[in-house]
């Protein structure tokens, strides 16, 4: 069993069916480890196709859970960065807390 997170703030357990979809859950879990992750690194971490990742990010962005932005580099092509919004981070952590409650209550 994974080690528990130390929550950033008191988290209200809230099961979120939108996040519970496997790919979206994994995307949120990966993004929760940083303030922002580069798109290519996220793709490599999760081992999913570019098109699937783009589609899921679009859905998460439409829900207000992630923000996707292209940032110019000092040299080379602009890179795409993805980050959880405050609402997204709260929803993800609330969902994880809800899952723990479900396990503890079982």
């Amino acid at each position: 069993m994974p080690e528990p997170h130390t929550p950033w703030e008191p988290v209200e357990p809230r099961f979120d069916e939108f996040i519970h979809s496997p790919n979206r859950l994994r995307i949120c879990a990966a993004l929760d480890t940083a303030t922002a992750l580069e798109f290519g690194a996220l793709e490599e971490s999760l081992g999913i196709s570019t098109s699937l990742l783009s589609k899921q990010l679009r859905l998460l962005a439409d829900a207000g859970y992630v923000r996707v932005e292209k940032r110019p580099q000092g040299f080379g092509r602009p890179r795409t960065w993805v980050r959880l919004t405050t609402e997204g981070r709260r929803a993800y952590r609330g969902h994880v807390a809800a899952l723990r409650d479900l396990i503890d209550g079982a």
Binding site: S21, P22, A29, L37, G47, V96, I103
Partner: peptide, 24 residues
């Protein structure tokens, strides 16, 4: 109903965290 047991979901989240940290 959403496709994952709570244990499976937490396991997937943990695996995704670990992979993201390793890659970056």
């Amino acid at each position: 109903r959403a496709g994952l047991t709570p244990e499976g979901a937490l396991e997937q989240a943990h695996t995704a965290r670990t992979a993201a940290i390793r890659v970056t």
